[in-house]
Design a protein around this nucleic acid. Structure first.
Length: 828
RNA sequence: GCCUGGGUGGCGGAACGGGUAGACGCAAGGGACUUAAAAUCCCUCGGGGUUCGCCCCGUGCCGGUUCGAGUCCGGCCCCAGGCACCA
C-alpha cells in the first residue's frame, strides 16, 4: 500500500468502482423516502467551466449526504442541447451543429465523470434528440388544441444579431440576453404560449415556495406584476360603444379630464373618421408605425398626441372629455386606453400642459391645499378626496374600494386585475431547435401534424448560412408536405421553438427517460416529482424558472403529472470570480477545471469550492486557497496512514464515555460536537464552508490527541471512532479520498452505503463550562464552573472572582445579570 | 425613481433566540528541522497604548432601545442585482 496521497490514482480507482457497482442508479422504491436532487443541466458549449463545477459539486454533496441518510436518490444529468451557439460555431468552423453538439457532449460527459459526480448516467438525455423533442411536439399540439399555443401578429422583440425574435423575459435592459445587442420592435406573426392564462396561479403559488430565495420570489412577483383596480366604461358623447379603460386609481376618477388612446388602439382611427381631425390622426398613427422602437429611442421620446375630434363623457361627473391618441399609451397593457388625470399623474400632467387641457385637483395631500393653477407637477401620492361627489372627504384607499363597488352597482365599471406578464413568444427564426409541428394548407388553413407523423425531425442536410430568415424555409424537402386533411400541397411551419421550451420539462422526463409510450410515465413521475432540491444560477430567476413553473402546470392540466410546482427547494448559487470579475475567456481570467483535476485532483477542487464561501454567495477564486485545501487533505491522509496499522486491529469505541480518562473524554466530546455541527450546517443551510471548518478543527485536535493521548489504554478505540466519523462527515464533499481511507480501515463496502453518523447525547454532555464575566458590558474575566451550577451559584462564583473584587473595590454591584448560565454581567 | 440583497482584519469568510467579534483557511512575520531549498512542525498576527498585569478604540455613517447591539429600531451613505412610460 502506498502511503503517499496520490489523488488521481485514488480518484480514478473509485470512479471505476462506483460505475461497476452501479451505485448511483435509482429505481422506484415505495418503502424508502425519495429525494430528487437536480442541478440545472448545461448547454454543451464545449468544456465544463468552474461555474458548472461549483454548481454540480453542491448538488453532488447534497445527493451523497441524503443517500447516507437513507433516502432513495434521483440525481440525473443531461444536456440542454439546442441553441444558437451551435449554429454560430457551425458557420464559423464549417461543422454541422449536430456534430458540434454531440462532440461537445462527449467531451463534457468525460469531464463530469472525471469530477466524480454521483449521477444516474443511464437517464442521461439530450434535448436535441428526436426521441426527446417528439414529446414536446406532442405537448405543443395538445396546447394548440386547447388554445394555449396560438399564433398572432404583434409587435415583438427582434434581435438583429441573432436574427430572431425574443420573448419579453429574454430582453434585459432593452438588449438581447444572449448577445447584448439592442433589441427593436417588429410587427410579425408569431407563435405564443398563453402563459397569461396561468398568471394568477403562477403568482399565488409563489406563496407555497417557502424554500425559495426571497429575491427570486420577488423578481417573479414583479415580473408577473399584478395590479388591482377597475375597468371603467366611458360613454361616447354621440353614442356608440363606450371606451373601456383600466386604472388602479379609481379614486381619481373625478379628476379625469380627457382620454388617451394607444396609437394601435382600434378606435384611434375609427373615431376620427369623418371629423376634421381624421387626416391629422392618420398622419400621427402612420408616423408612429414608422417610429424606430428600439429602447433607447423610446425612452427619449417626448409625450405627444393628437385630438381625434371626438369626445367621451366622464361616467361620474358627466364632463365632456376630449379623446386623444397619445404616443405613451401602451396597447399591450390594460385596455390600451387610459383615463387622463393630469393633476395626479405626471405623464397626463405633461400632456395636459402641452395641449392646454383642463386640470382638476381631486386628491388633497395631508396638511396642504393644492390648486390646479399652481401645480408644477402632478401629485401622485394618496390623500383625501375633494370635488368627488359623495366620495369627497374619504381617504384614497377606502375611496378606491367604495368607488369600485359603486361602479359595479351602477353598471359603469367593474373591479379588475391586470398583469404585466405577456404571453411567451416561442417562435424562433433559427435552425437548431425543435420544429413547430404545424402545416399550412391554402384550402384547409392551419393544421397540427398528425400524432402518428411525429416527430417532425429536424433535417440534418442543412448548413445554416446565417442569412435571411428561418434556414428551414430554404429547404423544399422539409417545407413541402401534403396537407393531412385534404392531401393537397401544403407547407410546414419553418420556425423552431425557443430552447427554453425543452428546459421547461426535462426534469420530469428524467423520471422516465426511457419511456416510449408518451411524454411522461405517470407512475414514475408521480413517484419522483417534485424535485426536492434544485440548484442553479440566479440568472434564471425569471426565465427558466418561470417557464418551468408554467409548463408544469400545463402538463398537470393535460393529465401528464399531478404536481402544481416543480421545485420544492431552490438554491441559487453565486458566481465564480477571479480578480473580482466573472471568469470569462474575453477577460482572460478563466481557471480550467481540467487543469485543476490533473494538478490537485477533483477532491481538492471540490473542497476549495465548498470551503471558500457559502453556496449562495459569489466566490473569489484563489490559487493559494486551493493549496490550503490540498494541504488539509494531505494532513488527513497522513494522519490516517500513521494510525492505520494500529487502528485496523481496533474496534470503534462503543461506550457512553464515562469510563474514559479526562483527556480522551474531551477529545471524544469534540468528535461528537463536530458530528452535530456538521450535520446542522449541511441540513439546515447547506453551509459547507463552516462544516469543513469544523472538521478542520477536529483534525487539528486529532493531531494533538495522537501526540498526547496515544499511550492511554482506550486511545485506539476512541481514535478509530473518531477517524470513522471524520471520513463519514467528509465523504459527501471529498468522496474519493474518504472511500480509499475507509477501505484502508478494512471495510469492503462503499462508504456511500455507511450511515450518516449520529452525535451521541451522552458524549455531548459537558461537566464544566466557561462563564464569561462582564463588568458594565465589557469582558473582564472568565471562570470555569461545574455544569450543574444554577444561575444563583454562577452569580456567586462570579462575584467571588478576584478580578471582579478588584473592580468592585468593596462596593456592592448595582445590578447583576446572568444570561443562559454562560455569561454574567455585573453593573457597577 | 421603485424593489431585492449586501457593507466585519491585509484577503476569503465565522459569530444561525441580542450575550466572549474575527472560528476555519489564505497571506505575512519570527523560529525549529536541513549543507541548502522544498515539504513539515511551533509561535505571532484588527488598531493604539502598556509598568507586559492589563487599559482604550473598533463590525459603512449618525442617533435610539437595552445590564449588554455586528445582530433590534429610526435616519443616511456606498456597492451589486432586478424592474422601469404598466395607467
Amino acid at each position: 500500500m502506498s502511503s503517499r496521497y496520490e489523488p488521481r490514482r485514488v480518484e480514478e480507482k473509485w470512479q471505476q468502482i462506483w460505475a461497476q457497482r452501479r451505485l448511483f442508479e435509482a429505481g422506484e422504491d415505495p418503502s424508502r423516502p425519495k429525494y430528487y436532487v437536480l442541478e440545472m443541466f448545461p448547454y454543451p458549449s464545449g468544456r465544463i467551466h468552474m461555474g458548472h463545477v461549483r454548481n454540480y459539486t453542491i448538488g453532488d454533496v447534497v445527493a451523497r449526504y441524503k443517500r447516507m441518510q437513507g433516502f432513495n436518490i434521483l440525481h440525473p444529468m443531461g444536456w440542454d442541447a439546442f441553441g444558437l451557439p451551435a449554429e454560430n460555431a457551425a458557420m464559423a468552423r464549417g461543422l454541422h451543429p449536430a456534430n458540434w453538439t454531440y462532440d461537445n457532449i462527449d467531451y463534457m460527459r468525460r469531464q463530469l465523470k472525471a469530477l466524480g459526480y454521483s449521477y444516474d448516467w443511464p437517464r442521461e438525455l439530450a434535448t436535441c434528440d428526436p426521441e426527446y423533442y417528439r414529446w414536446e411536439q406532442l405537448v405543443f399540439i395538445e396546447m394548440y388544441r386547447r388554445g394555449l399555443a396560438y399564433k398572432k401578429k404583434a409587435p415583438v422583440n427582434w434581435c438583429p444579431k441573432c436574427e430572431t425574435v425574443l420573448a419579453n423575459e429574454q430582453v434585459e435592459g432593452g438588449c438581447c440576453w444572449r448577445c447584448d445587442s439592442e433589441v427593436s420592435l417588429k410587427e410579425l406573426e408569431q407563435w405564443f404560449f398563453k402563459i397569461t392564462a396561468y398568471a394568477d396561479e403562477l403568482l399565488a403559488d409563489l406563496d407555497v415556495l417557502a424554500h425559495w430565495p426571497e429575491r427570486v420570489l420577488t423578481m417573479q412577483r414583479n415580473w408577473i406584476g399584478k395590479s388591482l383596480g377597475a375597468e371603467i366604461f366611458f360613454p361616447l358623447k354621440d353614442g356608440g360603444e363606450p371606451i373601456t379603460v383600466f386604472t388602479t386609481r379609481q379614486d381619481t376618477l373625478w379628476g379625469a379630464t380627457f382620454m388617451s388612446l394607444a396609437p394601435e388602439h382600434p378606435l384611434a382611427l375609427s373615431l376620427a373618421q369623418g371629423t376634421p381631425q381624421e387626416a391629422a390622426v392618420r398622419a400621427f398613427v402612420d408616423h408612429w408605425r414608422a417610429q424606430d422602437r428600439s429602447r433607447g429611442v423610446l425612452e427619449e421620446l417626448t409625450k405627444e398626441g393628437v385630438f381625434t375630434g371626438r369626445y367621451c363623457l366622464n361616467p361620474v361627473s358627466g364632463w365632456e372629455m376630449p379623446i386623444y391618441v397619445a404616443n405613451f399609451v401602451l396597447m399591450e397593457y390594460g385596455t390600451g386606453a387610459v383615463m387622463a388625470v393630469p393633476a395626479h399623474d405626471q405623464r397626463d400632467f405633461e400632456f395636459a400642459q402641452k395641449y392646454g387641457l383642463p386640470i382638476r385637483v381631486v386628491i388633497q395631500p395631508p396638511g396642504e391645499e393644492l390648486r390646479a393653477g399652481d401645480l408644477k407637477a402632478a401629485y401622485e401620492d394618496e390623500g383625501v378626496l375633494v370635488n368627488s361627489g359623495s366620495f369627497s372627504s374619504l381617504a384614497s384607499a377606502p375611496a378606491r374600494e367604495a368607488i369600485a363597488a359603486f361602479l359595479e352597482e351602477t353598471g359603469r365599471g367593474r373591479r379588475a386585475a391586470h398583469f404585466r406578464l405577456r404571453d411567451w413568444l416561442i417562435s424562433r427564426q433559427r435552425y437548431w431547435g425543435a420544429p413547430i409541428p404545424i402545416i399550412y394548407c391554402e384550402k384547409c388553413g392551419m393544421t397540427p401534424v398528425p400524432e402518428q407523423d411525429l416527430p417532425v425531425k429536424l433535417p440534418l442536410d442543412v448548413s445554416p448560412t446565417g442569412e435571411g430568415g428561418s434556414p428551414l424555409a430554404h429547404l423544399p424537402s422539409f417545407t413541402n408536405v401534403p396537407c393531412p386533411l385534404c392531401g393537397g400541397p401544403a407547407r410546414r411551419e419553418v420556425d423552431t421553438m425557443d430552447t427554453f421550451v425543452e428546459s421547461s420539462w426535462y426534469f420530469l422526463r428524467y423520471a422516465c427517460a426511457d419511456y416510449r409510450e408518451g411524454p411522461l410515465d405517470r407512475k414514475r413521475v408521480d413517484y419522483w416529482l417534485p424535485v426536492d432540491q434544485y440548484i442553479g444560477g440566479i440568472e434564471h430567476a425569471v426565465l427558466h424558472l418561470l417557464y418551468a413553473r408554467f409548463f408544469t402546470k400545463v402538463l398537470r392540466d393535460l393529465g401528464l403529472a399531478r404536481i402544481d410546482e416543480p421545485f420544492t427547494r431552490l438554491l441559487t448559487q453565486g458566481m465564480v470570480l477571479k480578480d473580482g470579475a466573472k471568469m470569462a475567456k474575453s477577460k482572460g481570467n478563466v481557471v480550467d477545471p481540467e487543469y485543476m483535476i490533473s494538478e490537485y485532483g477533483t477532491d481538492t477542487t471540490r473542497l476549495f469550492l465548498l470551503f471558500a464561501a457559502p453556496p449562495e454567495r459569489d466566490l473569489e477564486w484563489s490559487d493559494q486557497g486551493v493549496l490550503g485545501g490540498h494541504r488539509f487533505l494531505h494532513r488527513l491522509w497522513t494522519l490516517a496512514q500513521n494510525l492505520l496499522p494500529d487502528l485496523k486491529k481496533a474496534q470503534p469505541y462503543q461506550g457512553s464515555g464515562s469510563d474514559l480518562p479526562p483527556g480522551l473524554g474531551e477529545f471524544r466530546q469534540k468528535v461528537h460536537q463536530t458530528i452535530q455541527k456538521v450535520t446542522g450546517d449541511i441540513e439546515d443551510r447547506f453551509h459547507f464552508n463552516t462544516a469543513i471548518a469544523a472538521v478542520m478543527e477536529l483534525i487539528n485536535a486529532f493531531y494533538q490527541a495522537v501526540e498526547e493521548l496515544a499511550p492511554e489504554e482506550k486511545a485506539l478505540p476512541v481514535f478509530r471512532e473518531a477517524l470513522e466519523a471524520v471520513l463519514q462527515l467528509l465523504y459527501p464533499m471529498v468522496p474519493h479520498i474518504t472511500e480509499e481511507l475507509w477501505e484502508n480501515l478494512g471495510y469492503n463496502t462503499s462508504l456511500q452505503l455507511a450511515p450518516w453518523p449520529q452525535a451521541q447525547a451522552e458524549a455531548l454532555v459537558e461537566t464544566a463550562r466557561t462563564v464569561v464575566i462582564q463588568i458594565n458590558g465589557k469582558v473582564r474575566s472568565r471562570i470555569s464552573v461545574p455544569a450543574s451550577h444554577s444561575d444563583q451559584q454562577v452569580q456567586d462564583a462570579a462575584l467571588d472572582d478576584p478580578v471582579v473584587q478588584k473592580w468592585l473595590k468593596g462596593q456592592p454591584p448595582r445590578r447583576v445579570v446572568v444570561a443562559r448560565g454562560k455569561l454574567v454581567n455585573i453593573v457597577i
